[in-house]
Design a protein around this nucleic acid. Structure first.
Lengths: 232, 232
DNA sequence: CATGTTGTTTGCGCCGGCGCAAAGATATAA
DNA sequence: TTATATCTTTGCGCCGGCGCAAACAACATG
């Protein structure tokens, strides 16, 4: 595999390659397989045999977990530079979530044997994988706490802010969420419902804090959201 | 540090040392520091500088996360053999949770430098750390889903079953939870309230599914709880 | 353009679960 | 034993958030 020139920036910025010298980096990339995922396509399904671990090069993926009767929780929105499915490091394990591309996406995948080799050869690689895992644990713990103790509207505010920080783009109006996100998506992400999210966003729109349309949200006044999520 | 003979069983069974030969094991243990924690004492506080990572040798620890106004979520109950605070591997990070001993406990702690050395010297050690991290991610994702989509009583049932599997002991009456656990604890663990938990346990007691007293729960009919948590 | 599809809003009613309060039960100390 | 603290139970009332239903709005397709 050639080193994908157009993603050299994403790659060098990814925590996965922190403190890894260029020649090792080239070797590591070389042992992976590049993969294209079309918009809406699924990279892997929850429950499938986890045989491969990925670095996201381009685009965004939605990691979600299903529960009977069509209910679903969105576990994580993943950006370029992130590692997913590190679970594939362990033989016999299955993917605990489903990964769906939200737009055209691209990734490098390493199969189990390749990862194991890389870990034994480059200690730093193992540490970097561990870093991703621990960051995920921290985020999950934080969101678990929120879900357990905070009211719905607060959770929605925090979710919006978290997504904004991760995937926000400055525009003339304010900070726009870069990907399509429906009321249902936000509900699945916050453990709420389509209706409650709609009412809440509607309310914030009237107050001028945000502007929202079909699958589109612009945060006009982040500070108002922050103080709403903290005060009272 | 001498190899603690009385815990050789816990140590050899711990996933942390899976596929690690005895001589390496001795070396790894040797570089750690043994620590005793009295009942109710705190091993580390959320927010403190994370300088040390632990393997629990004896006893149980409660990992919890605080939220304003005395609200608290119990993130995890930890048994002997588990690794906690792997976050200490990374410079500058802070403990994301508080660890409190539920009875007299004992642990081996490695400081950051020691862990980094161990990882570079023993690739398998890094993999084993990664395994703990990934197991935690999976459990958190599962509990997050539950909290997001399931009703309170179902969550309480699942929580009881999870704790039973991890810390249950067969007695004449049924399977007893080995540590003291109050209604408030269960509420903090399930994202509910003292009152709702009490009413629920009371109800299950009347049906003969469980028997419960002050900080004590015996599961008489696990099957009933399982089907309650799944059906309908 | 017309037509179908998918996403959003909002009125309305309902109920699961919360939280107070007060009494009862169980443990610890004196 | 009595006293004190802590934990548990349960009646009662309330309300945040859910979920239906129906209308509306935005996009896709040919």
């Amino acid at each position: 595999m050639n080193i994908p020139e157009q993603y050299s920036d994403t790659i060098s910025r990814s925590e996965l390659f922190a403190d890894i010298p260029p020649d090792m980096l080239a070797d590591i990339l070389d042992r992976g397989r590049r993969q294209h995922i079309k918009a809406g396509e699924i990279l892997f399904h929850e429950g499938d045999h986890a045989d491969r671990c990925y670095l996201v090069l381009k685009g965004r993926l939605k990691l979600s977990k299903l529960h009977g009767q069509g209910k679903e929780a969105i576990i994580h929105y993943v950006e370029a530079g992130a590692v997913i499915a590190a679970v594939a490091v362990f033989k016999g394990k299955r993917f605990p979530v489903t990964a769906r591309a939200m737009g055209a996406a691209e990734a490098i995948g390493w199969d189990r044997d390749a990862i194991m080799e890389l870990i034994s050869e480059y200690a730093q690689f193992a540490i970097n994988l561990l870093r991703f895992a621990i960051d995920r644990i921290e985020e999950l713990q934080t969101r678990y706490l929120e879900l357990a103790v905070e009211q719905v509207e607060r959770r929605i505010a925090r979710a919006l802010l978290r997504i904004m920080r991760q995937s926000g783009r400055k525009t003339g109006e304010g900070i726009e969420i870069e990907f399509k996100i429906s009321r249902q998506d936000l509900a699945d992400y916050t453990g709420s419902t389509l209706y409650t999210v709609s009412r809440t966003l509607s309310n914030w729109g009237k107050r001028g804090w945000i502007k929202s349309g079909r699958q589109r949200i612009v945060i006009i006044n982040p500070h108002a959201l922050v103080s709403f999520s903290e005060t009272d």
